[in-house]
Amino acid sequence: MSVIVYIESNENRVKKTSIEAAFYAAETAKLLGTEAIAIALGTHDATELANLGNVGITKVLHDANTKFDQFDTRAITKAIVAASTSVNADVVVVSYNQNGKAIAPRVSVRMKAGMVAGATALPNTSAGFIVRKNVFSGKAMANVQILTEKKVIALTPNTLQKVVGVNTATIEAFSTGVSDADFTTVIKSVEKVTGTVSLTEAELVVSGGRGLKGPENWGPIEELAREMGAATACSRPVADVDWRPHHEHVGQTGFTIRPNLYIAAGISGAIQHLAGVNGSKVIVVINTDIEAPFFKAADYGVVGDAASVLPKLVEAYKKFKAASH
């Protein structure tokens, strides 16, 4: 028996969401009294893979076939299942990020393994195998019992506090046996913003809504995000009118995020918006209207005009940063 975790890299660095999934896999392995092994496909940096030892991975199976660099859900599923079979894995862990959402259900079927989509806690193994997840857009949690011997867990990003040690994972070249004919996805183009923090991985997020009045007023949001190393987000109407790009839209119809800190300026806090952000550990709301529903979901509130509050917050943060370095 073992626990296996699917690892992704981006520009030669293992994704933060994958490191979290690896830590989750290692902790689950401890609960089951076994070891956690990683499967990495395509191009990866060897040192980065070896560093997965820091979060408890003992061994990394690496199939360096560069065909895997094109994201093909069918081929990757076959590869993960081949690796799982070879190490006799009972539990497969993937991140519940954009790619993991596509992969996990396929792996679940291929292994006939019950799946939990969007786990928010380690499994409870005291009576069966129960994993917690959010339901009803974050308004409640369900404890899902997996009834099968094999299990697939897709882990919500930013769920666990990682404990990092100093260990090196061994890397083993591995052939998943996936043939060229299995790759049927052709990537035609990629439109990607580089040099900014990705929203799904971000620990800190600064977000704006219609209360900012126009795209020209996003300067302080972007400056604050840059200073803090935060990602930027927005409410849906703001993306709908193209004040901001669609990939920043959070909420029921956009992304669900769970950063440590979510700063919302000029956002009313409609239930559909909250659905995407109510898992945030700490929420700061800046709004002119003390009756705005968002204050009920907030930890810290500022009643004021975002146009003047945000620049003050940028200054205050810069001062804090200067003093603490």
């Binding site: 069966g128 339901v135 409640a140 109510n278 979901a297 810290y300």
Partner: peptide, 18 residues
């Protein structure tokens, strides 16, 4: 392959600090 054994409501936020 799975079953929900129980639900819990999300914990309520304590009062917002102004």
């Amino acid at each position: 392959l799975t079953t929900i054994s129980s639900f819990e409501l999300a914990p309520q936020k304590t009062a917002c600090k102004m």
